[in-house]
Design a protein around this nucleic acid. Sequence first.
DNA 1: TTGACATATGCTAAAAATGGCATATGTTGA
DNA 2: TCAACATATGCCATTTTTAGCATATGTCAA
Lengths: 132, 132
Amino acid sequence: MLKMAYVDSMVRTATTLDVFNAIGDRRRRDILDCLARAPSERAVGELVSEVGLDQPTTSKHLRVLREVGLVNVRRAGRHRLYSLNAHAIKAVHDWTRTFERFWQHQLTKIKEHAETAHRADQQDTDPTKKGT
Amino acid sequence: MLKMAYVDSMVRTATTLDVFNAIGDRRRRDILDCLARAPSERAVGELVSEVGLDQPTTSKHLRVLREVGLVNVRRAGRHRLYSLNAHAIKAVHDWTRTFERFWQHQLTKIKEHAETAHRADQQDTDPTKKGT
DNA sequence: TTGACATATGCTAAAAATGGCATATGTTGA
DNA sequence: TCAACATATGCCATTTTTAGCATATGTCAA
């Protein structure tokens, strides 16, 4: 139901601009990890060195992180000091927490035989046998 | 032409096929949320109704979820019953937990004045003035 | 077997994301 | 003001992802 009559403007999934999508990129996660580690603030140039991307690319990823609120920026002379805004990551944390109860159970009761029984089904269910 | 001297394997960011990327898509998150809610297993047809995607699209998203280990499949007659594999989500949960200490502090000590002081800098630093 | 049903896959066109390079913008100091 | 430095943006070409439709594959029942 409600197959949503695609209003021509949302032909696609729409906004990629949310935290979940932002952390889907490994580079951006690298940046976040980097900001979480050492000093609380980093100039773009430092991130460029640590993450290993070139400056424009780094700036673009930082922009995405900025737009979804994952990082903060502050000016310091000709530098821009980026810092983590962990609060945004909390959204993801909270979402994953929704599933917490599952793996708590799954590991104890289910997993044991799921590893054996279910495995059989999956092997022939998850083909990956692309070629026809 | 032949511009791609590129090592052929790492032309881009590489494997998009990891859990983080999988949950970056809202549709897929919807599917996961769905599987987390009601009965522990769902036939594809049921997911189609609940999530609101057409069958092929649903199957494709399920495939992605399957390939990154976020869901399990089991055959039941002509149906395929999908169930959540929360264990895979735990990976994301653990990653976010890395930042837990930040928002615990940020909310208490930092946030208070960060909301005011830093905001000023950001406004003029986070333009979003796309059009030029 | 045949036919209805359930789900997966192939193919194509379009959209979105990305890397790279060039360059604009903003800052500091002489 | 000019030059050097730091960072952000614009633009282009390419890769990736995805929606949609058609259809293949597999299952059950008569």
